[in-house]
Amino acid sequence: MRYAMAIDTKRCVGCADCVVACQRENNVPEGFCRDWIVEETTGTFPELQLEIRSERCNHCADAPCVRCCPTEASHYEEGGVVLVDHDSCIGCKACIASCPYDARFVHPEGYVDKCTFCIHRVREGKQPACVEVCPTHAMIFGDLDDKNSEISKALRTRKYKTLIPEAGTDPHVFYLL
């Protein structure tokens, strides 16, 4: 099993529903977010190109945040999901510095927090909150090891990219182009 997410940049309109859904589902404290919307504009007016992405922790397969954690609080769960065990985290913030995507933050309660791929929902057979709520169905979550899953199909048929693969972390959030 290898969980991953594919986000269709052609469908995403940047409404930020995923951001709000995540904040509600995961009780993200006010002023913080585990996912966010990036709009990248390239070109010169009037020849402009716009790419909209919903970004979050990439649940890297070679995650520097797991490697540098002194207490094993940051660890891999089933399907390669990267999680932080709150009761082992000492708040040294090494993992925050180690993440090239700046996906982590210190929760006001002291431990480090970030996207969990809504693993608590996935275990119940549901989709992550952001995926479920997306009005344009721009997000696909699923198992890459299952050749018939929707995400495997999308990655077989569409062009895609990951963000800064050159940082060497083997990210598992894919952007369909």
């Binding site: 951001v19 990248e40 504009t41 925050i96 210190v106």
Partner: peptide
């Protein structure tokens, strides 16, 4: 130009 349009001001980040 890269803009985080949903707003992101995670303290410390």
């Amino acid at each position: 130009e890269v803009a985080i349009t949903s707003g992101r001001m995670n303290h410390g980040v």
